[in-house]
């Protein structure tokens, strides 16, 4: 009857992550389109790619230009990132706006923010104590 059911990750880490404040990358440019916001940003080429490029072309590669098309929901979260609201506040607003469950909104918003972070579009600021 009793089996290996595990409890979820310890609370403080999750709470701490939700208290962080996302900050936009000032280099990122946005364009408002019918389907949502289009983000234009630049990234440095990965070291292994630079090495290959240099040996092939004989020079360092230029900065890579990228773009990311957000849908309406992604755009609303992007617009909520103003450098003062925490991830938790953004997810609460998102929850109210779309009539979602609290945890459902938290997971959606934090996963989206994580994706933006991986692309270098945002950074997370530690909450003030």
């Amino acid at each position: 009857m009793i089996s290996k059911k595990k409890t979820t990750a310890p609370g403080p880490d999750r709470q701490h992550a939700l208290a962080c404040i996302p900050m936009r990358n000032p280099e990122c440019r946005e364009e408002h389109k019918e389907e949502g916001i289009l983000l234009r940003y630049t990234v440095q080429a990965k070291p292994w790619l630079r090495k290959i490029f240099k040996s092939a072309a004989g020079r360092e590669p230029e900065i890579i230009r990228k773009k990311l098309q957000l849908d309406a929901m992604g755009s609303s979260v992007w617009q909520a990132i103003d450098g003062s609201k925490s991830v938790l506040t953004i997810s609460r607003d998102f929850q109210k706006e779309h009539q979602l469950g609290p945890r459902e909104a938290e997971i959606s918003v934090s996963e989206f923010i994580q994706q933006l972070g991986k692309r270098g579009l945002i950074a997370l600021k530690e909450p003030e104590k």
Binding site: I2, K5, T7, T8, G11, R103
Partner: peptide, 26 residues
């Protein structure tokens, strides 16, 4: 209380991100 784990025969609830109550049956 948030249902943090929902299995066919097990439910775990959290309060303020901490486990508060679990129920298992057979």
């Amino acid at each position: 209380w948030h249902p943090a784990a929902v299995y066919t025969d097990y439910l775990l609830f959290e309060e303020h991100y901490q486990p508060v109550f679990a129920l298992k049956w057979q």
